[in-house]
Computed example of a mutant assay.
Amino acid sequence: MKSVKNMVAAANEAVDHAPAAEMMALHGQDGVTFVDLRDPRELEREGMIPGAFHCPRGMLEFWIDPDSPYAKPQFQSEDRFVLYCASGWRSALSAQAAQEMGLNNVSHISDGFGGWKKAGGPVGEKPAKKA
């Protein structure tokens, strides 16, 4: 059986990644989309990176695929995508899946939202649901 730790290590060999302290330089730049993969309950509890697009991990592949009935326009752009989760494990696997699906210019925050907060990155509230 392949362990999650081994899967994450393999994903990190295949995709670009950096700690939050380095990724903070990309925050707010045109053409860069931060993607929060965490569960909605995590966003409620801890907030999120301001301006990030929330994509629950379980929907990522469906939202990326332009032929999916669930495709989201955010993933149909030429933006650079910076994925993150709580600690960098889900985002590593997600970035690898996105890259394998043909999403160009994808990377992830290797120490996750926890690293973002520790590095002093801005934190905002979860966006309100649209009526």
Rank of each mutant, 00 (worst) to 15 (best):
D30T: 09
Q29H: 11
P56T: 03
F62Q: 10
P56A: 12
H27D: 06
A71P: 04
G58F: 13
H54E: 09
G31K: 03
F34L: 05
E22A: 15
R57P: 03
D65K: 09
A71D: 04
E61D: 12
E44A: 15
A52W: 01
E61M: 09
M48Y: 00
V32N: 12
R45S: 11
W63E: 15
M24A: 12
P19G: 12
R57Q: 11
L60F: 06
P50F: 03
A11L: 03
M24Q: 13
G51E: 05
W63R: 13
D16R: 14
S68L: 04
M48A: 10
L26D: 11
D36V: 03
D39R: 14
A25S: 14
D39C: 08
A21G: 03
H54Q: 13
K72V: 05
E46L: 14
E46P: 02
E46M: 12
H17R: 08
I49A: 06
A71E: 06
P66A: 11
G28W: 13
Q29V: 00
A11Y: 06
A14V: 01
G51Q: 04
P69C: 01
R45M: 13
A20D: 07
A71V: 12
M23S: 14
A14R: 15
R45F: 08
C55F: 01
N12H: 10
L60D: 11
L37H: 05
R57V: 04
E44G: 06
T33A: 13
F53M: 02
L43G: 14
G47R: 10
L43W: 04
V15Q: 05
V35L: 03
D39H: 15
G51V: 00
M23Q: 14
P40A: 05
G58I: 04
D65Y: 07
F34M: 06
P56C: 06
P40G: 07
A21V: 14
G31H: 02
F53Y: 15
M24N: 00
D39N: 15
N12T: 00
G28H: 10
A20V: 08
A14W: 00
M24T: 04
Y70V: 00
T33Y: 05
Y70M: 12
L37G: 13
M48N: 04
G31Y: 06
L60A: 10
M23H: 05
V32C: 07
D39G: 10
A52P: 07
F34N: 05
E13F: 00
E42D: 15
G47Y: 09
V32F: 12
W63Y: 11
S68T: 05
G51R: 01
G51S: 06
F62N: 06
Q29N: 10
P56Q: 13
I49R: 05
H27Y: 09
G51K: 02
A11P: 08
R45K: 15
H54K: 06
